[in-house]
Write a protein that binds this DNA or RNA. Sequence first.
DNA 1: TTGTTATTTAATTTGACACTAAATTAAGCG
DNA 2: CGCTTAATTTAGTGTCAAATTAAATAACAA
Lengths: 109, 109
Amino acid sequence: MIDKAIQALTEPRRRDILHLVRYGELTSSAIASHFDVTAPAISQHLKVLEEAGLVVVRRAGTKRFYGIRREGFTELMHYIESFWDDSLMRLKEAAEEEERRKHDHNQQQ
Amino acid sequence: MIDKAIQALTEPRRRDILHLVRYGELTSSAIASHFDVTAPAISQHLKVLEEAGLVVVRRAGTKRFYGIRREGFTELMHYIESFWDDSLMRLKEAAEEEERRKHDHNQQQ
DNA sequence: TTGTTATTTAATTTGACACTAAATTAAGCG
DNA sequence: CGCTTAATTTAGTGTCAAATTAAATAACAA
């Protein structure tokens, strides 16, 4: 799913769509009206975003309202953290080791 | 730069590279040895990652050591938050309002 | 300088994907 | 049912990017 989420964010137009629905649900056509591409193009983007778990759709009659799926973004955040919070941990450990060394040094004096 | 960072993360192989250098710097060839693609392919991936601000390179003789650039990832985190932290903020404010209401209630007792 | 190692650049092929137009599904209304 | 609206699916096309081979650069050692 993470793979799909990152893949989905690749396309600038899909990121624009996400920013559009950030504050509330919008229909497919309402979203399409903000762009100069055809409705099918937007529909395809929405499908990608939905399969990536970044948006949810709510059907009401012939309309479909698209909105942000927050869990999708929290998962994404955790994944991105996986690239660097370990390095932070190492820095922290190095600092503690340094601190411990200083402490031992003081005791020897 | 954010565009480039997301674009860079699209490719699964580049994400694997990032996970490889997570714990410390590695040379281009050391990285390449983990994959079944040619060295030039890895070199090109590293270039993309560098231009995206996700890795830094340190030259030492004929070798080039690649390592994580943490700031690149924090920028990315902030960008991803931009899709949903507003909703979180609203939740937080609602919670605070709830808390305030409880507090007032207690004072009244 | 010549050779060797480490790595990148250049040129090319191949495959993926964003777009469009046309056809299709699905819901509601006369 | 037939019509309209809302939206998607399908099929075809053009563009871009990832991989490869071959050539070039860069640092060091003999």
